[in-house]
Design a protein around this nucleic acid. Structure first.
Lengths: 241, 241
DNA sequence: CCACAATCCTGATCTAGGTCAAGCTGTCCA
DNA sequence: TGGACAGCTTGACCTAGATCAGGATTGTGG
Protein backbone atom coordinates (compact mmCIF):
# COMPACT_ATOMS: atom_id res chain seq x y z
CA UNK A 1 0.00 0.00 0.00
CA UNK A 2 1.05 3.54 -0.70
CA UNK A 3 2.27 4.33 2.72
CA UNK A 4 3.77 7.21 4.68
CA UNK A 5 6.62 5.37 6.35
CA UNK A 6 7.40 2.56 3.92
CA UNK A 7 6.26 2.89 0.33
CA UNK A 8 7.45 0.76 -2.56
CA UNK A 9 6.44 2.61 -5.74
CA UNK A 10 6.78 1.75 -9.42
CA UNK A 11 10.01 -0.19 -9.03
CA UNK A 12 8.25 -3.49 -8.49
CA UNK A 13 6.09 -2.72 -11.49
CA UNK A 14 9.04 -2.68 -13.85
CA UNK A 15 10.95 -5.49 -12.17
CA UNK A 16 8.31 -7.95 -11.05
CA UNK A 17 9.32 -9.63 -7.84
CA UNK A 18 9.40 -13.43 -8.09
CA UNK A 19 7.01 -15.26 -5.80
CA UNK A 20 9.90 -16.77 -3.86
CA UNK A 21 11.25 -13.31 -3.12
CA UNK A 22 7.88 -11.70 -2.56
CA UNK A 23 7.21 -10.16 0.81
CA UNK A 24 3.73 -11.59 0.65
CA UNK A 25 4.93 -15.16 0.37
CA UNK A 26 3.84 -16.11 3.82
CA UNK A 27 0.28 -15.00 3.27
CA UNK A 28 -0.10 -15.67 -0.42
CA UNK A 29 -1.75 -18.78 -1.74
CA UNK A 30 1.55 -20.40 -2.70
CA UNK A 31 2.44 -20.29 0.99
CA UNK A 32 3.48 -23.70 2.07
CA UNK A 33 4.98 -24.53 -1.30
CA UNK A 34 8.68 -25.27 -1.52
CA UNK A 35 10.45 -22.69 -3.65
CA UNK A 36 10.94 -25.04 -6.61
CA UNK A 37 7.17 -25.41 -6.90
CA UNK A 38 6.76 -21.67 -7.15
CA UNK A 39 8.70 -21.71 -10.38
CA UNK A 40 5.97 -23.83 -11.90
CA UNK A 41 3.33 -21.21 -11.26
CA UNK A 42 1.79 -19.67 -14.30
CA UNK A 43 3.62 -16.57 -15.39
CA UNK A 44 0.41 -14.58 -15.04
CA UNK A 45 0.38 -15.57 -11.40
CA UNK A 46 3.67 -13.86 -10.84
CA UNK A 47 3.45 -10.58 -12.70
CA UNK A 48 1.43 -7.96 -10.96
CA UNK A 49 -1.04 -5.91 -12.92
CA UNK A 50 -1.36 -2.21 -12.21
CA UNK A 51 -4.76 -0.64 -11.56
CA UNK A 52 -5.17 3.10 -11.41
CA UNK A 53 -7.38 4.82 -8.87
CA UNK A 54 -11.04 4.03 -9.57
CA UNK A 55 -10.12 1.23 -11.99
CA UNK A 56 -12.40 -1.81 -11.75
CA UNK A 57 -10.68 -5.08 -10.90
CA UNK A 58 -13.85 -7.09 -11.45
CA UNK A 59 -17.62 -6.67 -11.63
CA UNK A 60 -20.54 -8.92 -10.66
CA UNK A 61 -21.28 -11.87 -12.94
CA UNK A 62 -17.96 -11.51 -14.70
CA UNK A 63 -16.64 -15.09 -15.07
CA UNK A 64 -13.79 -15.49 -12.65
CA UNK A 65 -11.59 -18.44 -11.85
CA UNK A 66 -8.83 -16.58 -10.08
CA UNK A 67 -7.99 -14.98 -6.82
CA UNK A 68 -6.10 -11.71 -6.66
CA UNK A 69 -3.28 -10.92 -4.26
CA UNK A 70 -2.89 -7.24 -3.48
CA UNK A 71 0.83 -6.47 -3.65
CA UNK A 72 0.38 -2.77 -3.06
CA UNK A 73 -2.45 -0.30 -2.84
CA UNK A 74 -6.00 -0.96 -1.74
CA UNK A 75 -9.44 -1.79 -3.08
CA UNK A 76 -13.04 -1.65 -2.02
CA UNK A 77 -15.61 -4.35 -2.75
CA UNK A 78 -19.24 -3.35 -3.00
CA UNK A 79 -22.63 -4.23 -4.36
CA UNK A 80 -25.28 -1.98 -5.85
CA UNK A 81 -28.72 -2.29 -4.26
CA UNK A 82 -32.10 -2.09 -5.98
CA UNK A 83 -32.14 1.71 -5.67
CA UNK A 84 -28.73 1.94 -7.32
CA UNK A 85 -26.99 2.73 -4.05
CA UNK A 86 -23.50 1.44 -3.47
CA UNK A 87 -22.99 -0.72 -0.38
CA UNK A 88 -19.41 -1.50 0.56
CA UNK A 89 -18.85 -5.01 1.90
CA UNK A 90 -15.11 -4.82 2.47
CA UNK A 91 -11.87 -2.92 2.09
CA UNK A 92 -8.66 -4.74 1.28
CA UNK A 93 -5.09 -3.59 1.67
CA UNK A 94 -1.68 -4.82 0.54
CA UNK A 95 -1.25 -8.38 1.73
CA UNK A 96 -4.86 -9.37 1.23
CA UNK A 97 -6.12 -12.07 -1.08
CA UNK A 98 -9.46 -11.20 -2.66
CA UNK A 99 -12.07 -12.96 -4.76
CA UNK A 100 -12.71 -15.92 -2.45
CA UNK A 101 -16.48 -15.47 -2.51
CA UNK A 102 -16.39 -15.90 -6.32
CA UNK A 103 -15.14 -19.48 -6.27
CA UNK A 104 -18.56 -21.01 -5.60
CA UNK A 105 -20.21 -19.30 -8.53
CA UNK A 106 -17.24 -19.18 -10.89
CA UNK A 107 -18.11 -15.52 -11.31
CA UNK A 108 -17.62 -12.34 -9.35
CA UNK A 109 -20.42 -11.45 -6.94
CA UNK A 110 -19.33 -7.89 -6.11
CA UNK A 111 -17.66 -4.95 -7.73
CA UNK A 112 -14.03 -4.49 -6.81
CA UNK A 113 -12.48 -1.10 -7.42
CA UNK A 114 -8.98 0.27 -6.74
CA UNK A 115 -8.95 3.08 -4.17
CA UNK A 116 -5.53 4.24 -5.34
CA UNK A 117 -2.88 3.06 -7.78
CA UNK A 118 -2.53 -0.61 -6.85
CA UNK A 119 -0.72 -3.73 -7.96
CA UNK A 120 -2.52 -7.06 -7.96
CA UNK A 121 -1.34 -10.54 -8.89
CA UNK A 122 -3.87 -12.79 -10.50
CA UNK A 123 -3.73 -16.33 -9.14
CA UNK A 124 -5.46 -18.77 -11.43
CA UNK A 125 -7.30 -21.50 -9.56
CA UNK A 126 -7.08 -23.91 -12.47
CA UNK A 127 -3.31 -23.83 -12.32
CA UNK A 128 -3.29 -24.46 -8.62
CA UNK A 129 -5.59 -27.43 -9.04
CA UNK A 130 -4.12 -28.82 -12.27
CA UNK A 131 -0.58 -28.82 -11.01
CA UNK A 132 -1.90 -30.36 -7.83
CA UNK A 133 0.61 -28.61 -5.63
CA UNK A 134 1.03 -30.29 -2.35
CA UNK A 135 -0.51 -28.26 0.40
CA UNK A 136 -2.19 -25.71 -1.82
CA UNK A 137 -5.70 -26.91 -1.16
CA UNK A 138 -5.19 -26.99 2.55
CA UNK A 139 -3.73 -23.48 2.47
CA UNK A 140 -6.57 -22.21 0.36
CA UNK A 141 -9.03 -23.82 2.71
CA UNK A 142 -7.45 -22.14 5.71
CA UNK A 143 -7.49 -18.84 3.87
CA UNK A 144 -11.21 -19.11 3.19
CA UNK A 145 -11.91 -20.32 6.70
CA UNK A 146 -10.04 -17.33 8.11
CA UNK A 147 -12.01 -15.02 5.87
CA UNK A 148 -15.32 -16.38 7.18
CA UNK A 149 -14.08 -15.65 10.67
CA UNK A 150 -13.10 -12.12 9.64
CA UNK A 151 -16.51 -11.52 8.12
CA UNK A 152 -18.08 -12.61 11.40
CA UNK A 153 -15.85 -10.24 13.35
CA UNK A 154 -16.76 -7.36 11.08
CA UNK A 155 -20.41 -8.24 11.46
CA UNK A 156 -20.08 -8.21 15.24
CA UNK A 157 -18.34 -4.84 15.02
CA UNK A 158 -21.34 -3.36 13.26
CA UNK A 159 -24.35 -5.03 14.86
CA UNK A 160 -25.22 -3.91 18.38
CA UNK A 161 -22.43 -1.33 18.62
CA UNK A 162 -22.46 2.44 18.86
CA UNK A 163 -21.12 4.65 16.10
CA UNK A 164 -18.08 5.46 18.27
CA UNK A 165 -17.28 1.78 18.78
CA UNK A 166 -17.56 1.07 15.06
CA UNK A 167 -15.18 3.86 14.08
CA UNK A 168 -12.73 2.96 16.84
CA UNK A 169 -12.65 -0.71 15.91
CA UNK A 170 -12.37 0.18 12.23
CA UNK A 171 -9.24 2.24 12.93
CA UNK A 172 -7.83 -0.46 15.17
CA UNK A 173 -8.45 -3.07 12.49
CA UNK A 174 -6.64 -0.93 9.91
CA UNK A 175 -3.67 -0.52 12.23
CA UNK A 176 -3.57 -4.20 13.13
CA UNK A 177 -3.70 -5.29 9.51
CA UNK A 178 -0.91 -2.94 8.46
CA UNK A 179 1.16 -3.96 11.45
CA UNK A 180 0.82 -7.62 10.47
CA UNK A 181 2.35 -6.71 7.13
CA UNK A 182 5.32 -4.86 8.52
CA UNK A 183 3.97 -1.32 8.52
CA UNK A 184 3.40 1.04 11.39
CA UNK A 185 0.33 0.28 13.44
CA UNK A 186 -0.06 3.86 14.60
CA UNK A 187 0.63 5.96 11.54
CA UNK A 188 -0.83 5.21 8.15
CA UNK A 189 -2.74 6.59 5.20
CA UNK A 190 -6.48 6.07 4.99
CA UNK A 191 -6.98 5.37 1.28
CA UNK A 192 -10.77 5.61 1.44
CA UNK A 193 -13.02 8.63 1.85
CA UNK A 194 -15.13 9.35 4.92
CA UNK A 195 -18.14 8.58 2.77
CA UNK A 196 -16.74 5.11 2.06
CA UNK A 197 -15.97 4.51 5.73
CA UNK A 198 -19.48 5.61 6.70
CA UNK A 199 -21.04 3.37 4.08
CA UNK A 200 -18.93 0.41 5.20
CA UNK A 201 -19.84 0.93 8.86
CA UNK A 202 -23.51 1.65 8.24
CA UNK A 203 -23.28 5.27 9.40
CA UNK A 204 -23.86 8.72 7.94
CA UNK A 205 -20.78 10.64 6.74
CA UNK A 206 -21.58 13.40 9.18
CA UNK A 207 -21.47 10.96 12.06
CA UNK A 208 -18.08 9.61 11.01
CA UNK A 209 -16.77 13.14 10.63
CA UNK A 210 -18.04 14.14 14.07
CA UNK A 211 -16.46 11.09 15.66
CA UNK A 212 -13.12 11.78 14.00
CA UNK A 213 -13.28 15.32 15.38
CA UNK A 214 -14.24 14.04 18.82
CA UNK A 215 -11.36 11.53 18.80
CA UNK A 216 -9.00 14.33 17.78
CA UNK A 217 -10.26 16.56 20.62
CA UNK A 218 -9.72 13.71 23.07
CA UNK A 219 -6.16 13.35 21.80
CA UNK A 220 -6.77 9.79 20.63
CA UNK A 221 -5.87 10.39 17.02
CA UNK A 222 -4.42 13.08 14.77
CA UNK A 223 -4.90 13.60 11.05
CA UNK A 224 -3.28 15.60 8.35
CA UNK A 225 -4.82 15.06 4.97
CA UNK A 226 -5.29 11.33 4.66
CA UNK A 227 -2.51 10.42 7.08
CA UNK A 228 -3.88 9.14 10.35
CA UNK A 229 -1.93 8.85 13.58
CA UNK A 230 -3.24 6.82 16.48
CA UNK A 231 -1.92 8.68 19.52
CA UNK A 232 -3.55 6.63 22.24
CA UNK A 233 -3.81 3.01 21.23
CA UNK A 234 -4.99 1.78 24.65
CA UNK A 235 -7.84 4.23 24.92
CA UNK A 236 -8.98 3.64 21.32
CA UNK A 237 -8.86 -0.08 21.96
CA UNK A 238 -10.98 0.41 25.07
CA UNK A 239 -13.61 2.32 23.09
CA UNK A 240 -13.60 -0.33 20.36
CA UNK A 241 -14.23 -3.11 22.87
CA UNK B 1 -35.47 -29.60 11.25
CA UNK B 2 -38.46 -30.36 13.41
CA UNK B 3 -41.08 -29.21 11.04
CA UNK B 4 -44.82 -28.81 10.87
CA UNK B 5 -45.45 -30.32 7.46
CA UNK B 6 -42.60 -32.82 7.14
CA UNK B 7 -40.85 -34.00 10.27
CA UNK B 8 -38.56 -37.03 10.50
CA UNK B 9 -38.20 -37.81 14.19
CA UNK B 10 -36.25 -40.46 16.09
CA UNK B 11 -36.39 -43.04 13.32
CA UNK B 12 -33.15 -41.88 11.73
CA UNK B 13 -31.61 -41.84 15.18
CA UNK B 14 -32.06 -45.57 15.63
CA UNK B 15 -31.43 -46.52 12.02
CA UNK B 16 -28.72 -44.16 10.83
CA UNK B 17 -29.14 -43.32 7.20
CA UNK B 18 -26.09 -44.13 5.08
CA UNK B 19 -24.46 -41.17 3.37
CA UNK B 20 -25.36 -42.52 -0.06
CA UNK B 21 -29.02 -42.60 0.94
CA UNK B 22 -28.97 -39.37 2.87
CA UNK B 23 -31.25 -36.61 1.71
CA UNK B 24 -28.44 -34.16 2.36
CA UNK B 25 -26.06 -35.83 -0.02
CA UNK B 26 -26.21 -33.08 -2.57
CA UNK B 27 -25.18 -30.42 -0.11
CA UNK B 28 -23.00 -32.44 2.24
CA UNK B 29 -19.23 -32.46 2.00
CA UNK B 30 -19.07 -35.92 0.43
CA UNK B 31 -21.02 -34.48 -2.47
CA UNK B 32 -19.19 -35.22 -5.65
CA UNK B 33 -17.90 -38.51 -4.35
CA UNK B 34 -18.94 -41.67 -6.12
CA UNK B 35 -20.96 -43.92 -3.87
CA UNK B 36 -18.15 -46.41 -3.38
CA UNK B 37 -16.02 -43.67 -1.87
CA UNK B 38 -18.70 -42.87 0.64
CA UNK B 39 -18.28 -46.34 2.12
CA UNK B 40 -14.73 -45.42 3.03
CA UNK B 41 -15.87 -42.54 5.18
CA UNK B 42 -15.17 -42.85 8.84
CA UNK B 43 -18.03 -44.45 10.70
CA UNK B 44 -18.28 -41.37 12.91
CA UNK B 45 -18.93 -39.38 9.77
CA UNK B 46 -22.02 -41.39 9.08
CA UNK B 47 -23.75 -41.76 12.41
CA UNK B 48 -25.59 -38.71 13.56
CA UNK B 49 -25.25 -37.59 17.14
CA UNK B 50 -28.31 -36.28 18.96
CA UNK B 51 -28.21 -32.99 20.82
CA UNK B 52 -31.03 -31.95 23.10
CA UNK B 53 -32.36 -28.41 23.23
CA UNK B 54 -29.73 -26.08 24.71
CA UNK B 55 -26.99 -28.72 24.38
CA UNK B 56 -23.64 -27.28 23.30
CA UNK B 57 -22.21 -28.67 20.07
CA UNK B 58 -18.91 -26.84 20.53
CA UNK B 59 -17.40 -23.92 22.42
CA UNK B 60 -14.67 -21.41 21.57
CA UNK B 61 -11.08 -22.68 21.72
CA UNK B 62 -12.21 -26.27 21.84
CA UNK B 63 -9.87 -28.13 19.45
CA UNK B 64 -11.86 -28.99 16.37
CA UNK B 65 -10.89 -30.74 13.18
CA UNK B 66 -14.35 -31.54 11.93
CA UNK B 67 -17.32 -30.01 10.27
CA UNK B 68 -20.83 -30.85 11.35
CA UNK B 69 -23.74 -31.52 9.03
CA UNK B 70 -27.14 -30.75 10.52
CA UNK B 71 -29.41 -33.63 9.58
CA UNK B 72 -32.36 -32.31 11.55
CA UNK B 73 -33.06 -29.55 14.00
CA UNK B 74 -31.31 -26.21 14.25
CA UNK B 75 -28.51 -24.44 16.09
CA UNK B 76 -27.35 -20.93 16.88
CA UNK B 77 -23.73 -19.83 16.81
CA UNK B 78 -22.73 -16.96 19.05
CA UNK B 79 -19.90 -15.24 20.83
CA UNK B 80 -19.81 -13.66 24.26
CA UNK B 81 -18.59 -10.08 24.34
CA UNK B 82 -16.46 -8.42 27.02
CA UNK B 83 -19.54 -7.55 29.08
CA UNK B 84 -20.68 -11.17 29.00
CA UNK B 85 -23.42 -10.46 26.50
CA UNK B 86 -24.31 -13.08 23.93
CA UNK B 87 -24.08 -12.00 20.29
CA UNK B 88 -25.53 -14.39 17.74
CA UNK B 89 -23.56 -14.62 14.49
CA UNK B 90 -25.70 -17.19 12.70
CA UNK B 91 -28.56 -19.64 12.79
CA UNK B 92 -28.30 -22.95 10.97
CA UNK B 93 -31.04 -25.33 9.95
CA UNK B 94 -31.21 -28.88 8.66
CA UNK B 95 -29.10 -29.11 5.53
CA UNK B 96 -26.42 -26.73 6.74
CA UNK B 97 -22.79 -27.57 7.26
CA UNK B 98 -21.27 -25.76 10.22
CA UNK B 99 -17.82 -25.23 11.68
CA UNK B 100 -16.11 -23.85 8.57
CA UNK B 101 -14.68 -20.86 10.41
CA UNK B 102 -12.86 -23.25 12.77
CA UNK B 103 -10.63 -24.80 10.09
CA UNK B 104 -8.10 -21.97 10.09
CA UNK B 105 -7.48 -22.13 13.81
CA UNK B 106 -8.03 -25.85 14.33
CA UNK B 107 -10.35 -24.81 17.13
CA UNK B 108 -13.87 -23.49 17.46
CA UNK B 109 -14.22 -19.73 17.45
CA UNK B 110 -17.87 -19.49 18.54
CA UNK B 111 -20.31 -21.27 20.74
CA UNK B 112 -22.75 -23.51 18.92
CA UNK B 113 -25.90 -24.52 20.73
CA UNK B 114 -28.88 -26.64 19.69
CA UNK B 115 -32.14 -24.67 19.54
CA UNK B 116 -34.20 -27.86 19.68
CA UNK B 117 -33.53 -31.60 19.62
CA UNK B 118 -31.17 -31.93 16.64
CA UNK B 119 -29.13 -34.54 14.85
CA UNK B 120 -25.67 -33.67 13.58
CA UNK B 121 -23.11 -35.73 11.69
CA UNK B 122 -19.48 -35.07 12.50
CA UNK B 123 -17.31 -34.96 9.39
CA UNK B 124 -13.63 -35.36 10.26
CA UNK B 125 -11.39 -33.26 8.04
CA UNK B 126 -8.41 -35.56 8.57
CA UNK B 127 -10.29 -38.42 6.98
CA UNK B 128 -11.28 -36.34 4.01
CA UNK B 129 -7.69 -35.24 3.49
CA UNK B 130 -5.96 -38.52 4.31
CA UNK B 131 -8.09 -40.57 2.00
CA UNK B 132 -7.57 -37.85 -0.57
CA UNK B 133 -10.98 -38.26 -2.07
CA UNK B 134 -11.16 -36.94 -5.53
CA UNK B 135 -13.16 -33.77 -5.64
CA UNK B 136 -13.52 -33.33 -1.91
CA UNK B 137 -11.23 -30.35 -1.65
CA UNK B 138 -12.90 -28.58 -4.48
CA UNK B 139 -16.32 -29.21 -2.97
CA UNK B 140 -15.16 -28.03 0.40
CA UNK B 141 -13.69 -24.96 -1.20
CA UNK B 142 -16.95 -24.16 -2.92
CA UNK B 143 -18.80 -24.67 0.33
CA UNK B 144 -16.57 -22.19 2.14
CA UNK B 145 -16.71 -19.76 -0.74
CA UNK B 146 -20.48 -19.89 -0.69
CA UNK B 147 -20.48 -19.28 3.04
CA UNK B 148 -18.38 -16.14 2.64
CA UNK B 149 -20.94 -14.90 0.14
CA UNK B 150 -23.76 -15.70 2.56
CA UNK B 151 -22.03 -13.83 5.35
CA UNK B 152 -21.76 -10.82 3.04
CA UNK B 153 -25.44 -11.02 2.20
CA UNK B 154 -26.38 -11.17 5.85
CA UNK B 155 -24.12 -8.22 6.54
CA UNK B 156 -25.82 -6.23 3.79
CA UNK B 157 -29.19 -7.16 5.25
CA UNK B 158 -28.25 -5.61 8.56
CA UNK B 159 -26.16 -2.58 7.66
CA UNK B 160 -28.06 0.39 6.25
CA UNK B 161 -31.49 -1.21 6.48
CA UNK B 162 -34.54 -0.43 8.59
CA UNK B 163 -35.81 -2.77 11.29
CA UNK B 164 -38.74 -3.73 9.05
CA UNK B 165 -36.44 -4.65 6.17
CA UNK B 166 -34.26 -6.77 8.44
CA UNK B 167 -37.15 -8.76 9.84
CA UNK B 168 -38.72 -9.20 6.40
CA UNK B 169 -35.50 -10.42 4.82
CA UNK B 170 -34.85 -12.68 7.79
CA UNK B 171 -38.22 -14.38 7.28
CA UNK B 172 -37.65 -14.60 3.54
CA UNK B 173 -34.23 -16.14 4.11
CA UNK B 174 -35.72 -18.73 6.44
CA UNK B 175 -38.35 -19.63 3.87
CA UNK B 176 -35.87 -19.78 1.02
CA UNK B 177 -33.50 -22.00 2.94
CA UNK B 178 -36.22 -24.43 3.95
CA UNK B 179 -37.59 -24.45 0.43
CA UNK B 180 -34.16 -25.37 -0.93
CA UNK B 181 -34.25 -28.41 1.32
CA UNK B 182 -37.65 -29.60 0.26
CA UNK B 183 -39.81 -27.97 2.91
CA UNK B 184 -42.55 -25.43 2.55
CA UNK B 185 -41.34 -21.91 1.90
CA UNK B 186 -44.43 -20.33 3.40
CA UNK B 187 -45.18 -22.34 6.49
CA UNK B 188 -42.53 -23.34 8.99
CA UNK B 189 -41.56 -23.37 12.61
CA UNK B 190 -39.31 -20.64 13.98
CA UNK B 191 -37.05 -22.59 16.33
CA UNK B 192 -35.52 -19.47 17.90
CA UNK B 193 -37.01 -16.96 20.33
CA UNK B 194 -37.83 -13.34 19.47
CA UNK B 195 -34.92 -12.39 21.70
CA UNK B 196 -32.57 -14.50 19.56
CA UNK B 197 -33.93 -13.00 16.35
CA UNK B 198 -33.55 -9.49 17.73
CA UNK B 199 -30.00 -10.18 18.84
CA UNK B 200 -29.11 -11.67 15.46
CA UNK B 201 -30.55 -8.69 13.59
CA UNK B 202 -29.14 -6.05 15.92
CA UNK B 203 -32.57 -4.93 17.18
CA UNK B 204 -34.42 -4.78 20.50
CA UNK B 205 -36.87 -7.60 21.23
CA UNK B 206 -39.67 -5.08 21.51
CA UNK B 207 -38.97 -3.85 18.00
CA UNK B 208 -39.08 -7.37 16.57
CA UNK B 209 -42.30 -8.06 18.42
CA UNK B 210 -43.90 -4.85 17.16
CA UNK B 211 -42.88 -5.64 13.58
CA UNK B 212 -44.32 -9.15 13.81
CA UNK B 213 -47.57 -7.61 15.02
CA UNK B 214 -47.51 -5.02 12.26
CA UNK B 215 -46.88 -7.70 9.61
CA UNK B 216 -49.77 -9.71 11.05
CA UNK B 217 -52.07 -6.68 10.92
CA UNK B 218 -51.09 -6.09 7.31
CA UNK B 219 -51.95 -9.69 6.53
CA UNK B 220 -48.40 -10.50 5.45
CA UNK B 221 -47.85 -13.27 7.96
CA UNK B 222 -49.72 -15.31 10.54
CA UNK B 223 -48.42 -17.07 13.61
CA UNK B 224 -49.67 -19.66 16.03
CA UNK B 225 -47.18 -20.58 18.67
CA UNK B 226 -43.89 -20.93 16.87
CA UNK B 227 -45.43 -21.82 13.50
CA UNK B 228 -45.11 -19.01 11.04
CA UNK B 229 -47.07 -18.65 7.84
CA UNK B 230 -46.05 -16.24 5.13
CA UNK B 231 -49.36 -15.17 3.61
CA UNK B 232 -48.08 -12.58 1.16
CA UNK B 233 -44.72 -13.57 -0.21
CA UNK B 234 -44.57 -10.81 -2.83
CA UNK B 235 -45.27 -8.00 -0.40
CA UNK B 236 -42.83 -9.36 2.18
CA UNK B 237 -40.20 -9.67 -0.52
CA UNK B 238 -40.85 -6.08 -1.53
CA UNK B 239 -40.32 -4.87 2.03
CA UNK B 240 -37.14 -6.95 2.35
CA UNK B 241 -35.66 -5.41 -0.80
C1' DC C 1 -53.22 -29.94 36.77
C1' DC C 2 -51.33 -26.15 38.80
C1' DA C 3 -47.75 -22.63 39.57
C1' DC C 4 -44.13 -20.06 38.19
C1' DA C 5 -40.79 -18.80 34.98
C1' DA C 6 -39.88 -17.67 30.40
C1' DT C 7 -41.47 -15.53 26.48
C1' DC C 8 -44.17 -12.31 24.17
C1' DC C 9 -46.77 -8.09 23.53
C1' DT C 10 -47.99 -3.11 24.15
C1' DG C 11 -47.68 1.66 25.60
C1' DA C 12 -44.90 5.85 27.02
C1' DT C 13 -40.76 8.12 26.90
C1' DC C 14 -35.98 9.20 25.45
C1' DT C 15 -31.87 9.47 22.63
C1' DA C 16 -28.29 8.15 19.19
C1' DG C 17 -27.61 9.09 15.11
C1' DG C 18 -29.87 10.36 10.61
C1' DT C 19 -31.15 14.27 7.64
C1' DC C 20 -30.89 18.86 5.95
C1' DA C 21 -28.38 23.00 5.23
C1' DA C 22 -24.37 25.61 4.80
C1' DG C 23 -19.65 26.88 5.11
C1' DC C 24 -14.75 25.20 4.70
C1' DT C 25 -10.56 23.05 2.59
C1' DG C 26 -7.75 21.15 -0.67
C1' DT C 27 -6.77 19.94 -5.40
C1' DC C 28 -6.90 19.79 -10.15
C1' DC C 29 -6.77 21.81 -14.44
C1' DA C 30 -7.68 25.76 -17.82
C1' DT D 1 -3.93 31.69 -10.37
C1' DG D 2 -8.42 31.21 -9.74
C1' DG D 3 -12.70 28.91 -10.39
C1' DA D 4 -14.93 24.52 -9.77
C1' DC D 5 -15.65 20.44 -7.70
C1' DA D 6 -15.10 16.73 -4.44
C1' DG D 7 -14.45 15.83 0.08
C1' DC D 8 -14.76 17.26 4.88
C1' DT D 9 -16.72 19.67 8.90
C1' DT D 10 -20.17 21.85 11.83
C1' DG D 11 -24.73 23.20 13.47
C1' DA D 12 -29.90 22.62 14.01
C1' DC D 13 -33.40 19.68 13.89
C1' DC D 14 -36.03 15.29 13.70
C1' DT D 15 -37.26 10.47 13.60
C1' DA D 16 -36.42 5.27 14.10
C1' DG D 17 -35.82 2.50 17.27
C1' DA D 18 -33.91 1.83 22.19
C1' DT D 19 -35.22 1.73 26.87
C1' DC D 20 -38.31 1.35 30.67
C1' DA D 21 -42.45 -0.46 32.67
C1' DG D 22 -46.19 -3.35 32.94
C1' DG D 23 -49.36 -6.83 31.66
C1' DA D 24 -50.84 -11.16 28.84
C1' DT D 25 -49.55 -15.83 27.17
C1' DT D 26 -47.33 -19.88 27.06
C1' DG D 27 -45.17 -23.95 28.38
C1' DT D 28 -42.95 -26.80 31.72
C1' DG D 29 -41.58 -29.29 35.76
C1' DG D 30 -43.26 -31.04 40.13
Amino acid sequence: MQHAAKSQPEVAMRNPIQCNQCSMQSICVPAGLVSSDVELLDKSSREPHVYNKRAMVYSPDQPMHSLFAIKSGSVKCYTIDSEGKQQITSFHLAGDIIGMESIAKGAAVTYCEALETSMLCEIKLSRLFAQNFNGVDKNLLQLLSKRIGQRNVHYLNVVNTTAEQRVASFLMAMGDHLHEHGFSRQEFRLPMTRTDIANYLGLAVETVSRIFTSFKNQGLIATQQSILTIKNLQELQKIAA
